[in-house]
Write a protein that binds this DNA or RNA. Structure first.
Lengths: 228, 228
DNA sequence: GTCTATAACATGATAGAC
DNA sequence: GTCTATCATGTTATAGAC
């Protein structure tokens, strides 16, 4: 057994994933059936369930791959870039670049957003590690900025939430090449970075302090804080 | 025909709705089946489809009713209240009061959030009038505050978004009687009202102007602005 | 227009044999 | 790890009663 070569199972899994995404892109998430996907991958219907617990799980697996790709891309692009505004732009825009051709089925990822116990819930326990990974990219992007400890803990999550909102907006955005989303992201990032500069002023800090504390407390209880 | 009395159809519809919600509360949205709901309401399975185009539509109809109730409640409570912070608190907390026992199936409302063309999508065209109604409550709540025209248009939507986030947080909130959600809402509202006071200062205005313009442009194109 | 009754369909998901 | 058979359930269809 060559350790480098994929096992049979891994190849089958990859094939199902590939064919599934192919069909989602063509027909959309609803219209593409598990039976069709299985047929296209030349396996039995039941076999897909050996690898993916549900239809949505195929999209989730795609998203896992997106995260890996994104992380690599960010590390490549961010290297040597010291300006905060630029760094944040790289993180978000490169994510959208990766997702750009798959807006049609990306919405399936949001299906269980309102169901805390579902394994694929965006905010649920089942996706905790992915969230942490994703927020980690933002933590790195702001690593060199001088901010309070509270902000250093809060900001990655605020930015992660913002990036989630951007993806949602992206899905709805019918402007050519989703220019509107890009513009909105840029506008928000401008605002965020200008805002961060302001926080060096004591007046602003006092103003925000109680709210920061409350938010931190909530995140802590929810088990959302990154192990630093 | 008595104009006050409900027609037979309305009674049946109401019965299906009532029994449906009953079962959703007991078993959750997934576990309750259309067949069971029909049985419980003593109608044929097909009859439920005469009134509700889908299972989710029952939850949507519930939400319609929530909106009507909410609007009435807000108008009652807000009368004579002049403090902005209080007025906003009334709008959001009374909404949560209405929803409090139905957190278990409320998540079904968010199922199509990522699917722009679905009739039940939270941000889609099919729910536009409900959104406008809901945002209208916020518009009224801020009616007497002195703010720029831009903010007067933007703020109802910002608050509506915030209230949507609060509902989502509410669904996830496992603290006793969802106290954490209440605290978070209060914290955010404090911040918002303090922030609005600051916007009377020209410095802050200049800082926010370009972003406000951009947001307004986007909302306008998306057809989201309230007819004033 | 408001249903009943029943069957049928499509499809996501599961069980169990090999 | 893969298959076939089967199930459960949302949804549609048909045909008709009042």
């Amino acid at each position: 057994m060559n350790a480098i070569k994929k096992s049979v199972g891994e190849k089958t899994r990859a094939l199902i994933l590939e064919k599934g995404l192919e069909m989602f892109r063509e027909a959309g998430f609803e219209a593409a059936t598990i039976r069709d996907i299985a047929k296209s991958a030349k396996v039995a219907t039941g076999a897909t369930y050996y690898y993916f617990p549900s239809k949505e799980a195929i999209v989730a697996a795609y998203y896992d791959h997106v995260q890996v790709t994104h992380e690599a891309k960010v590390r490549e692009l961010i290297l040597g870039e010291t300006d905060l505004r630029e760094r944040l732009g790289i993180v978000i825009h490169s994510k959208l670049d990766i997702l750009k051709d798959d807006r049609k089925f990306l919405g399936a990822l949001f299906r269980y957003t309102g169901e805390p116990d579902h394994p694929l819930s965006v905010f649920g326990k089942g996706t905790k590690s992915q969230r942490a990974h994703s927020a980690g990219l933002f933590r790195e992007a702001i690593a060199d900025v001088e901010i309070t400890d509270e902000l250093r803990q809060l900001l990655p999550w605020a930015l992660w939430m913002m990036h989630l909102g951007a993806i949602l907006f992206f899905i709805y955005d019918e402007s050519a090449e989703q220019r509107r989303t890009r513009a909105l992201v840029n506008g928000v990032l401008d605002l965020v970075t200008q805002f961060l500069k302001l926080t060096s002023a004591p007046v602003i800090r006092t103003f925000l302090q109680p709210f920061q504390g409350k938010m931190l407390g909530i995140l802590k209880e929810a088990g959302w804080l990154l192990e630093s």
